[in-house]
Amino acid sequence: MRINCPHCGARDAQEFTYLGAADPQRPDGLAATEAAMTDYVYMRDNPAGPHRELWYHGAGCHSWLIVTRDTRTHAIALVEPAKTRKAGAAA
């Protein structure tokens, strides 16, 4: 499996570390309910098909990436820097 890093080009997946689903958003601090926190920490959609997930390029540019990958075939459709989303969310 290769991941096409937007900064470094196509690299072997061994250069990256996997974290998991990219979409869960941490509820806001002390105001968060227990149920919302449980949902964020433990519950996952775990789809069979396209999955947006976080990978860290530890042996390359040290950036977090959001990879859209099909869990049935391992085919990667899209790789984007995670900070793009963060900037977008702040705007």
Partner: peptide, 18 residues
């Protein structure tokens, strides 16, 4: 292996990754 998929049929999310 497929628990999340079957549980999703009734709208249930599980603390599981495949």
């Amino acid at each position: 292996g497929n628990s999340s998929r079957v549980a999703a049929m009734v709208g249930l999310r599980l603390p599981i990754e495949s």
